[in-house]
Design a protein around this nucleic acid. Structure first.
Lengths: 237, 237
DNA sequence: GAGTATGAAATCGTATACGATACAAAACTG
DNA sequence: CAGTTTTGTATCGTATACGATTTCATACTC
């Protein structure tokens, strides 16, 4: 591998095209950079993404940056307005509802499809994460709690054999992460209940429950979070 | 009326869809034009999309065309290869499986969410379409059958109040349409069975069945099509 | 003659340039 | 002084240009 290309090598060009090996294009890099900034929170919701500015920061021209941003738009991480500009997708209760509902559906399916492929080691791993979440409850650490929450669920759906579904799940999680929905949807009593539901889910998986049951449970888990948020916020018109 | 294209499915950026006649940007136009060509079958799977050529045809420069194509790539309607070019997404049994499975999930959910909003008139409309499909069976008209099939299901999920889910459903259908999966998945006995399942679905809706039942039925309907295809093709390794 | 270097053509990726649009502030008018 | 017009600036949208990469055909070596 290390051997540089140099002259045409006899080495079979067969399918190398290593996804990682090939230096990524600038639009790829820009995409990765901006996405990372959004997910990390450096660019918070509402942040104005000025093409020229980002291009300058990265040392690229605006063209690849524009492409990157439109790609992020397709993932609903930024909002683009014609002749005005792009901003990091912001919080909106309705959108939150849509996103949570959609994620509940695709994540439920992904988890159900993963279920038969989850090993005892996976479950142990997830349980360990869940215990750390329990600690966060005591320490009042919602940021870490949210991060661990994603880790927990990742273990449950990561074996999903259908990449399309998996992609949708990741998009949903990314969107929530970009919205920084942690502080937003961190309803007092809910977090504790969530941890308990996680444990139930794990027991269901350990018992080799039918896919249908797993799906229902996973979906209900998310619906409960959504409902808690809605109830928490409903009183005020 | 002939056009089944349904402009939905990933509407313009920022959900504009501005009917106010705001002239769309060239990249919008290019997007719409190329998308239409793919869905209509003018550009079949495997067709090579050369930027300069399309740009010339439309009278634009390559930049907006490139943007349009990358957007279509995000919808899985075209495949882009670095430094090589774009081609219309082709048929691949595995991809077909992934797509059908995913569509089954999101369409099932969309239909279930629509159910309470479907009127008697909607059902009558759907039933009329289904009768036309029955005629196609006699006339051996798989192309029209497939087109009507989309119309039928559109009636059932179009009231879905969650636009994210609706968008995913449209994407799935578009992808199948681009793949021209009709000829591909038109398994002899299956079409007739499909029409009967449609009738069952309508009766379920008329009876005001619980959302869960509707969802299960809609999903099973699609799974049955997929299974028929798999069984039809399975014998040969 | 099989397989490998070499070169030319096609196409993409990105930079730069400029016109178009939108928003805001200043100037004007009654 | 309120409302309207004008002007200015920031930013986007698209065209054009050129270097980079791939691909294919050709010539070459053993």
């Amino acid at each position: 591998m290390t051997s540089t290309v140099s002259t045409a090598g006899t080495a079979g060009p067969a399918g190398t095209a290593g996804p990682a090996g090939a230096t990524s294009s600038k639009s790829e890099q820009a995409y990765a950079a901006v996405k990372a900034s959004i997910l990390s929170g450096e660019y918070s919701p509402g942040y104005r993404l000025v093409l020229a500015k980002i291009a300058e920061e990265l040392g690229f021209s605006v063209v690849p940056v524009r492409e990157a941003i439109r790609r992020l738009e397709a993932e609903n991480l930024v909002v683009f307005e014609r002749n005005v500009g792009a901003t990091v997708a912001g919080i909106d209760p309705t959108e939150y509802l849509y996103t949570m509902q959609t994620l509940g559906i695709v994540e439920g399916a992904a988890t159900a499809l993963s279920a038969p492929l989850i090993s005892a080691a996976d479950i142990a791993r997830a349980r360990a994460v869940n215990e750390l979440m329990r600690e966060c409850l005591a320490n009042f650490d919602p940021v870490r709690f949210t991060s661990l929450n994603r880790d927990f669920h990742s273990v449950l759906f990561e074996h999903c054999p259908n990449p399309h579904i998996l992609d949708l799940v990741h998009r949903g999680w990314n969107r929530l992460q970009a919205l920084r929905s942690s502080t937003f949807s961190y309803v007092p009593g809910r977090a504790r209940q969530s941890v308990e539901e996680h444990e139930s889910l794990l027991r269901l998986l350990e018992a080799g429950a039918p896919a249908d049951d797993v799906e229902r449970a996973a979906r209900a888990h998310r619906a409960a979070t959504l409902d808690a948020y809605l109830a928490h916020r409903a009183p005020s018109p």
